[in-house]
Amino acid sequence: MGRDARRGGRLMVLLDALAAWFADPAHWAGPNGIPTRLLEHVALSGISMLIAGAIALPLGLWIGHTGRGATVAINAANLGRAIPSLALIGLAAPITAAFDPQLGFRVYPTLIAMIVLALPPILVNASAGVSEVDRDLVEAARGMGMRERQVLARVEIPIALPVILAGLRSAGVQIVATLTLGAIFGGGGLGNYLVLGIAQNDVGQVFGGVVLVAALALLVEGGFALLGRALTPVPLRAAEGGEHRGRALEGRAAG
């Protein structure tokens, strides 16, 4: 009884600290204010996602369509997954800093690590999604006189879309969460609240950062789920959302 009460008391202290942190107007203005940090986080995530997508999507679609290089791609993706993000940031920092002492030390290394982080899920899901499309359908499309480009654009991509989107979603959520590491290296984004909060032993700040990052990650997750539903052709919707297939593929392709 007493123990429960003490635990409840601790939770209240935590919630109070959290509420006080969010309520303080000083935390909503300036370069370390919530709007600025949130914007930085979204912008850095978006840039990483765009670059990773521009590389991995065409490559994955091509591999899935032609069946060429699938083994190489999956092994490269596994290698990419194996590299710890913090190690990659550290590895890149001295090199990019040689080109640009400011951004090269604080921002570029994290961006590079986030791009490498996002490549494997996008690549693996795009290629697996396309190559899993029923070959009879592809043959039928060819028989109807479609060119290879049209087969890809009108048959394979629409059918594979739930799996492709699951890859993008997984990459997006991982980026939003992992980008926080950049703050250890003086970069922008919501990770600053975590790093500063640990350093200053400020519980309200730490949990404020946790809540903001988790909310952003859930938003990305939910956004892609909605996008997936909106873009999935109606006849395919009934056949159990692409999520499960996408997730199962992730595990299997990597195994």
Partner: peptide, 14 residues
């Protein structure tokens, strides 16, 4: 799994 690791470590310290 979606909670950032840095966040979980930071939160657990308290």
């Amino acid at each position: 799994y979606t909670i950032p690791s840095l966040a979980m470590f930071a939160a657990l310290i308290s």
